[in-house]
Write a protein that binds this DNA or RNA. Structure first.
Length: 354
DNA sequence: TTGGATGTAAACAACA
DNA sequence: TTGTTGTTTACATCCA
């Protein structure tokens, strides 16, 4: 098989003029979302920049939306912990980022906590409520000190090799990502974060991860979208994802494809990975052909912060064109479809020479 | 004993 | 030039 080379494109040219920290359309969508819940958007803070005049936003054109040069949240390795959009229907806070349940049993470093707080502090949407919301039951915060001893039943000790195969680790990492797509670097970060063993493990394990990604049919490489930098996004093949879920004992077992992935010997511990467990339990398998959507959504999340994922249309509403040439070329088609999905997600029409 | 799955190491190319 | 990413090959180990 001919290796697919040269898929990593350069970074796109970006507009130099200062712009809103989020695309106007996304801000409008956030405002509409808040309004639809009976509240009015009063103030939006992104990266410390306050947006409080939404009339201007509403009237402004969408020009250069995608060229907003300032990402709301830097890609910092936390993507894997982001919960689904409906986790907290109150957009006024991203307190779920500091959901200690997510982190129970994991040795948190100070920087981990800071990262979490940083992201939560980057995007703040303040609204006025026209209906009286019920008081939000908050889980009492545990002490800030890192968990030295995992709660019983104990998962794998923090510094022993986890009982998961690399394919399972990769699957969990990708599955935990907001858009179910991650670059290799983020996969590394997720694994290290959740399995501190790898923090001090010999570097070869990264080679094993890449080896698995390349060799395992369960994982698909999605061409990098503009702005992502080096490397591609990796997704779990929907067909194989179903098999992964089956092997995790969460789904009825239809006939498995002939090249189904190897079963995970151990399901993720829900005590260790409550969010992942919830997601695996709740989410249906993504429709075929959703890779581009995931890739585009991931790029947006990395560029503008995870909050934008709340505002994205469902993948089914995306129109991603495919032409016969795409289906028969080894490269280029995926890139363009990802780019089109990205444009569609940002509310822009995709224009390309045909 | 055999074959498949898995882990590890290494070489290499392409790219930022 | 260096580090990262991605692919491929080879070999060892484990297990059914």
């Amino acid at each position: 098989m001919a290796p697919m080379r040269g898929e990593r494109g350069g970074s796109p040219a970006r507009g130099a003029r200062p712009s809103l920290p989020l695309p106007r359309r996304l801000i409008r969508q956030i405002a509409r979302h808040v309004a639809s819940s009976g509240r009015s958007l009063r103030r939006l803070e992104v990266s410390g920049r306050v947006i409080d005049n939404f009339d201007d936003i509403e009237d402004a054109s969408d020009e250069s939306d995608l060229e907003a040069p300032q990402p709301a949240v830097a890609c910092g390795g936390n993507a894997g912990n982001l919960p689904p959009a409906d986790h907290d229907d109150d957009l006024t806070s991203l307190s779920w980022l500091q959901d200690r349940n997510l982190l129970r049993g994991i040795n948190l470093t100070k920087s981990d906590m800071e990262d979490s707080k940083m992201i939560a502090s980057q995007v703040v949407i303040k609204s006025e409520t026209s209906k009286t919301p019920p008081p939000v039951a908050r889980v009492p915060s545990p002490p800030r000190t890192p968990c030295k001893a995992p709660p019983s039943p104990p998962a794998a000790p923090a510094h022993t090799k986890p009982p998961y195969s690399f394919s399972c680790l990769i699957f969990m990492a990708i599955e935990a990502a907001p858009a179910r797509a991650l670059p290799v670097k983020e996969i590394y970060a997720w694994i290290v974060k959740h399995f501190p063993y790898f923090k001090h493990a010999p570097q070869g394990w990264k080679n094993s991860v890449r080896h698995n990604l390349s060799l395992n049919k369960c994982f698909h490489k999605v061409a990098a979208a503009p702005g992502l930098g080096k490397g591609s996004l990796w997704t779990v093949d929907p067909q194989h994802r179903a098999t992964f879920l089956q092997t995790l004992g969460r789904q009825p077992i239809p006939p498995a494809p002939p090249d189904s992935p190897p079963p995970c010997k151990n399901a993720p511990d829900p005590a260790l990975f409550p969010f992942l467990a919830r997601r695996l339990q709740a989410s249906p398998p993504p429709p075929p052909g959703a890779d581009e959507y995931r890739a585009a959504a991931t790029v947006l999340a990395m560029k503008y912060g995870p909050a934008v994922l709340d505002q994205l249309p469902p993948a089914a509403h995306l129109v991603i064109s495919r032409c016969a040439r795409d289906e028969h070329s080894y490269s280029g088609g995926e890139e363009r479809r990802t780019a089109e999905a990205l444009l569609n997600l940002a509310g822009l029409a995709a224009h390309h020479a045909s």
